[in-house]
Write a protein that binds this DNA or RNA. Structure first.
Lengths: 144, 144
DNA sequence: ATACGTGCAAACGTTTTGCATATCG
DNA sequence: CGATATGCAAAACGTTTGCACGTAT
């Protein structure tokens, strides 16, 4: 984890993928921006910048990056995939406000260790995990 | 949490929902079967039993049960909602085999407590959470 | 009787795909 | 030049909805 942009380019080259205009534009937007985004939001960003990239290329490129482990997907809401660049970032989990949708990232070593222990107990070789805590954030919780 | 079938029926009655044939058939299949299922699988089960229930009714009934807290949804795979009856069952999380799809349920008090602590640190009032551990199960892990 | 539920088929939003064209190496 | 990527539009997928008809209360 915690790659650099060079890692991405090297990975793509090694896999025999070509460096095309569309691909470079998309990579730039994803790894320059940061944060969570949907495919459609990414497409809007690209179009706003005057780049002319098709929806298909956005989805295809996102797929490659997910396969390479440079982007992760999350399903915060049903029916829409959220993507997040993991470039240069360490693993983290999410707290999601069920009222305003705010997303806070956190890391907790102790939880990670317990997860490993649970997996081991059940004979699993852990590959990755997803932990999401849903609740009301400090602001939205006041009214309850 | 941990309701009985009577709780479900009482809830539905109190909400003013009617007891119809389709509804009874669906409830029976969901709470009689147990386990994880998709809307389509549930529909197949119902049809296999000769019941004639429409896809629309399946989705509408599932929605009511989710609202009532008797069924929970999970997104194990992208683009498809998995449902699970929580009737008579305590909270638990999941280990998912990325090769064969096997799902193992587990409970871990220590992890739960740490989650509460994390939420508190960030000023969140926790409502629910989702923890999924992905990896290779004991059987599928041997070949690696 | 009348409000609520049903089934059907059409609509929806997201994602994937087939194919002809353009581009990279 | 040959292989791969692109853009488009159509298809696919799971899910939701409008509506005329049925049924529980």
């Amino acid at each position: 984890m915690a790659h650099t942009l060079d890692d991405v380019n090297r990975y793509l080259r090694e896999k025999g993928f070509r460096s095309t205009g569309a691909r470079r534009t998309i990579l730039e937007a994803i790894f320059g921006g940061g944060g969570h985004f949907t495919a459609e939001e990414l497409l809007d960003t690209l179009r706003g910048r005057g780049g002319k990239v098709s929806r298909a290329s956005v989805y295809r490129t996102l797929g490659m990056l997910v396969d390479g482990g440079f982007v992760e997907t999350r399903e915060f809401r049903r029916g829409q995939t959220m993507y997040e660049a993991v470039l240069g970032r360490e693993h983290h989990d999410h707290l999601i406000c069920t009222v305003c949708g705010k997303i806070i990232e956190f890391e907790n070593e102790a939880i990670e260790r317990l997860q490993d222990a649970v997996a081991r107990e059940h004979g699993f070789t852990l590959e990755h995990h997803s932990l999401r805590l849903y609740g009301r954030c400090d602001v939205c919780g006041r009214g309850s």
